[in-house]
């Protein structure tokens, strides 16, 4: 699978964070990108249209990212969730992994870091 073939869901309440992540993904060749603004919307979107990778912020209204990660991974045990957050403390990292996330990127994530994280998806290395 190539980067341009990946179906990606971005979930962040920050307009700028969504734009920056979309720009980073576009820069490395990703084309099929959907955006939502909170954890519940991410779960609903995933139910309707499962994707290859979900990028989730943690601190969001309505439903936080770790709860959303847990529900998406319960829905689909093969879901590939990557947390992208400013709150990269050890506790948040542990909670994210427990919730089923496969990776954690500290904001601001560079295109190189995003590409590195996606390399595990393309390579089937999870």
């Amino acid at each position: 699978m190539d980067l341009e073939d990946l179906k990606i869901l971005i979930c962040d309440d920050s307009l700028l964070a969504r734009k920056n992540l979309r720009d980073g993904l576009s820069k490395i060749g990703c084309r099929n990108i959907t955006e939502v603004k909170d954890g519940q919307a991410a779960i609903d979107s995933y139910k309707d249209n499962p994707v290859d990778v979900v990028f989730l912020d943690i601190v969001m209204p309505v439903k936080d990212g770790i709860t959303a990660a847990r529900e998406i991974c319960t829905l689909d045990s093969n879901a590939y969730v990557i947390m992208v957050s400013s709150v990269g403390t050890q506790i948040h990292l542990r909670e994210a992994i427990k919730a089923g996330a496969k990776d954690f990127l500290q904001k601001p994530a560079t295109p190189e870091q995003i590409k590195e994280a996606l390399s595990h998806v393309i390579g089937g290395d999870d």
Partner: peptide, 29 residues
């Protein structure tokens, strides 16, 4: 846009609190 900066800085601050003084925090939206 500026709330994104505030969130970014506050996130860096609480990561440093956690790493340097074992003080655990989170942020509200």
């Amino acid at each position: 846009i500026l709330s994104d900066f505030l969130n970014l800085h506050n996130g860096r601050f609480i990561v440093n609190l956690s790493n340097n003084s074992n003080t655990e925090c989170s942020l509200s939206p």
